[in-house]
């Protein structure tokens, strides 16, 4: 214990110790009551958010949402659902290999100074506000590189946002494996790549997958970096990746709430409901993965 802390305890606590203990006991009970109330408040807020989304979103939920495209202020959400999927898939195709390889490198191969630098920079990148990435995407990808509002510009912006998370979780899950596993495999004559594939990957896999799912749910929920990179389209996305705007679900929630029409509001609520459902599913998957990885350890 450091001496500074000891002095702080005696300063703070001793005077109050002299008051009769009945009062202190009551105070303790009261403060625990407040603590439980705080926790209850947080849980109630979660349920209120879920309830307000579900109660308003469910009435708009029918097959035509999935089978028709948005037209003006009404219609379905097929274009937004497919667009969101497309943006997430392309962004993961870019950021997952980069992030996983980078995470493996700093966990296993890099010398400690380079590893520390990359970890540090990933933290910095993770802290960049997403609208700043959006601005960057607009100025550089959309205008400078002439991609226009497009799936590629949007996906690249999302990839920048998710990359540091994937690096961090991959790095952490490989570092959890005792170093003897890797050293032993090398001593047995395996190349580092074979050691990775046969020994380490299996142990790190739940952690890496958890990171990918987290990155997925971040990409799913982002709006700010997409407004100025992906644009919006009333039509289903196609395979033309540049100069072809795409729709996505978070845009519907944000924009259609401002429209003065009931049908537009309903569409926004339904889009929010779909987002929350996907987030819930990802959340449960992450929980299951974490449970299976702790069981293994």
């Amino acid at each position: 214990m450091n001496p500074q802390m000891n002095s702080s305890i005696s300063d703070v606590v001793l005077p109050s110790m002299e008051i009769n203990s009945q009062r202190r006991r009551l105070k303790s009970i009261a403060l625990w009551g407040v603590s439980m109330a705080s926790l209850l408040l947080v849980v109630l807020i979660v349920f209120d958010i879920l309830f307000s989304v579900v109660s308003r979103g469910v009435p708009g939920l029918n097959w035509s949402v999935f089978t028709t495209q948005t037209s003006g202020i009404a219609g379905g959400l097929q274009n937004a659902i497919l667009g969101t999927l497309m943006l997430i898939v392309i962004s993961m195709v870019i950021s997952a290999p980069l992030g996983i390889l980078g995470g493996i490198y700093i966990a296993l191969f890099a010398d400690s100074r380079l590893a520390a630098l990359v970890r540090f920079l990933s933290e910095v990148l993770a802290g960049v506000p997403s609208i700043v990435i959006g601005y960057f995407g607009y100025m550089v990808l959309v205008l400078q590189f002439k991609m226009g509002f497009s799936a590629l510009a949007g996906s690249l912006s999302l990839a920048i946002i998710t990359l540091p998370y994937i690096v961090r979780t991959t790095d952490a899950s490989f570092r959890q494996i005792p170093s003897q596993y890797f050293e032993g495999a090398i001593a047995l004559g395996l190349t580092p790549l074979m050691a990775l594939r046969t020994v380490l990957m299996r142990l790190a896999l739940p952690g890496v997958l958890t990171g990918l799912l987290l990155a997925l749910s971040i990409a799913l929920g982002e709006t700010a970096p997409l407004i100025f990179t992906a644009g919006w389209s009333n039509f289903n996305p196609n395979l033309q990746l540049v100069k072809n705007p795409v729709a996505y679900l978070t845009y519907v929630v944000w924009t259609y709430l401002n429209e003065p029409y009931k049908a537009a509001h309903q569409l926004a609520y339904t889009a929010a409901l779909l987002l929350v459902i996907i987030v819930l599913i990802l959340h449960v998957l992450v929980r299951m993965l974490q449970r299976s990885s702790t069981k293994q350890a």
Binding site: M36, T223, A272
Partner: peptide
């Protein structure tokens, strides 16, 4: 304070907040 059997349910509920998209917070 909260018994572990309850924590198992409450912790994920609190952490769910971190995953909700910001436009849904805006909607709320």
């Amino acid at each position: 304070k909260v018994p572990p059997s309850l924590v198992k349910w409450i912790s994920p509920i609190v952490e769910l907040l971190a995953g909700i998209p910001s436009v849904v917070y805006g909607l709320w």
